[in-house]
């Protein structure tokens, strides 16, 4: 049980590392949003799930309740994180942020 939690939390950190690297390295706003929206959702879900397993190992009533609360945070993040991403992308699009194309060579990130 502990091993499973450790694996899940470590995987979450690895995906979060990928998302951070993508956020820092990608050339324009839209591709950064790709990294932010996807990496953020999955890494948060994995880490919260691992922590929930850790909490559950005593199996008192209060711990089961806390586990359900953590799962509710999971559901909440799973629903709202893509929604936030979509809202921010929409704002950027209507504000007129130009997507980066391969052929413009002004490499200003």
């Amino acid at each position: 049980m502990n091993i499973l939690a450790m694996i899940t939390i470590s995987l979450g950190v690895v995906f979060f590392f990928g998302a951070t690297l993508g956020l820092l390295r990608f050339p324009d706003f839209y591709s950064r949003v790709h990294a932010a929206g996807k990496g953020d959702t999955l890494s948060s879900l994995l880490m919260l799930f691992g922590l929930g397993i850790l909490v559950l190992e005593n199996a008192h009533f209060i711990d089961v309740l806390t586990f359900i609360k953590i799962m509710m945070i999971c559901v909440f993040i799973f629903v709202t994180s893509p929604t936030t991403t979509h809202a921010l992308t929409d704002a950027g699009y209507s504000a007129g942020v130009k997507p980066w194309q391969k052929d413009d060579e002004e490499t200003e990130s």
């Binding site: 990928g18 690297l21 990496g39």
Partner: peptide, 14 residues
């Protein structure tokens, strides 16, 4: 699909 997407982003970022 989300796991696949993250592996895709991870490969691109690295």
């Amino acid at each position: 699909e989300v796991v696949k997407a993250n592996i895709h982003v991870f490969k691109l970022a690295l």
